[in-house]
Design a protein around this nucleic acid. Sequence first.
DNA 1: CATGCCCCCTGCACGC
DNA 2: TGCGTGCAGGGGGCAT
Length: 308
Amino acid sequence: MPELPEVETVRRGLEPVLVGQKLTKVSMRRPDLRFPFPENFSKRLKGQTITALQRRAKYLLAHLSGGEVLVMHLGMSGRFTIVEPPKLSATSKSGIGPHPKIKERPGQFVTETAHNTKHDHVIFETAAGATVTYNDTRRFGYMLLVEGDDLHNHKMFCNLGPEPLGNELHADYLASVARGRKSDLKAFLMDQRIIAGLGNIYVCEALFHAGLSPDRKSATLTSKTGKPLVRTQALVASIRLVLNGAIAAGGSTLRDYKKTDGSLGYFQHKFVVYGREGEPCTKPRCKGVIARKIHSGRSTFFCPKCQK
DNA sequence: CATGCCCCCTGCACGC
DNA sequence: TGCGTGCAGGGGGCAT
């Protein structure tokens, strides 16, 4: 899936299309994704206005005028596609007028281009005539409807750790939660209860940048006195740097998406270690070769020479 | 409690 | 060409 930077990029892409908009129609093409859709899903969404679109960890949160929150998780392969009605030029506004097909059936027009794809599972239509389609090949994603006041108590959210780009993540925090842990750094950083939003790619990237081995014991982030160490500071800084860099790259993709097909999801981004098994380490003067190894079923890419 | 493993699902790249 | 294998950015649920 999209990890935190990709979800944030999707959020920024959807925000101008959805926020302030009333949902005129929501349809599903199957009864479930990873989980069954909530009871009366379409009916509960129709007519509601989306008042805000937030992100928490890898979740998208669409706040609804009725007080519920539409929670969306993209799993491994979830994407959104936006199709907006053609912008009317000054000429057509004053003179010719909108295309008759659009005027009569705004939803129908975009339906023909947007809904014929395999694995399009959910289609949102807004009062402004935009269509937002959720596509998810592997269906590990899901959607929930949760009462806004109950969000923090929901089982999906109550155990989430701090946002990695927020103020709550700092070396003292990381040192304190790492204390006495038996797990290695790879598992530690993948654990959403420790930090919420990192995934397989950005854990590899952050560990590389910090020069720390994925096999290092998490407890070594803490000194005997419980104080954070230089490597702990470096890890926090690396996490921030890697995520911010990816979000910036996503932003540049966003500027282009309307020129292409409206697709929001993964984007092209250069990774320094991820997917680069056998390639030379990019750290200056390091003669190492990027290796791959499996940690609890997931590939880890790292430089055995400069990550200690 | 913490940790590790299996599994959900589809598609794709690879070797034979 | 077809088929089998392994792998893919997540994480819930369960056994230990």
